[in-house]
Design a protein around this nucleic acid. Sequence first.
DNA 1: TGAAATACTTCATCTGTCGTAGTACGACAA
DNA 2: TTGTCGTACTACGACAGATGAAGTATTTCA
Lengths: 112, 112
Amino acid sequence: MVEISSDVIRGYNDTMILSILLQEPSYGYEISKQIKTITDGKYVIKETTLYSAFTRMEKNGYIESFVASQDLEGNGKKRTYYRITDAGRDFYKDKCEEWELTKDVVEKFISK
Amino acid sequence: MVEISSDVIRGYNDTMILSILLQEPSYGYEISKQIKTITDGKYVIKETTLYSAFTRMEKNGYIESFVASQDLEGNGKKRTYYRITDAGRDFYKDKCEEWELTKDVVEKFISK
DNA sequence: TGAAATACTTCATCTGTCGTAGTACGACAA
DNA sequence: TTGTCGTACTACGACAGATGAAGTATTTCA
């Protein structure tokens, strides 16, 4: 059963990040650029929001981190990459369902 | 220019309440019942959330309160009614615009 | 050589929401 | 008349996600 949590967008940052990690593992800076691109610059996630989301989601078991260099030879900066877990995939699916419900609810109070 | 606030639903309780007050002045218990009815029971606002929203919105100048009895003769329980202000109407309109934008943004990350 | 971009971390603060609890009145039934 | 249910709140403390400010360090490129 999908339940509406009262902190929705507040919690949808996690969903956005996970949706990007569904494609392939990625890291902070790259994810933040992708969110900006995908939304045509309409939404820019704050750095602190992003990195605290990583911490939270890793603690919750939704993502796993590993450190890797820019290229295979180990050159370039080291970055912390994140990979989505099965639990993360489940959480993402739940959030998508929750979103549909939330949208219906909120729209009953919105005038266009 | 509409900007996405990062606390969306978190802030959309206010919008729901205001949308009800657009019709006519009302009070806590009645508004909470209306929200439940309008959403077919899908969303039930918590009492504490509701009453703290009143306090906040009155402070912000979006609503005004007045005490009135159940009937015109002054019989029955006294209730605190709230009336939406012009500032409240503006705020509501802004929130509606914000919602459209937010919806577009979030949906780019949602799979159905 | 130095600015800009990359890639973070730390820390303190804010604020809407929520849980728990309590108050008080009226209506209505047993 | 006693008790329960519905109505109509208020008070208080706590939580958690988001944020602002600031700092660090490396790499890239003009």
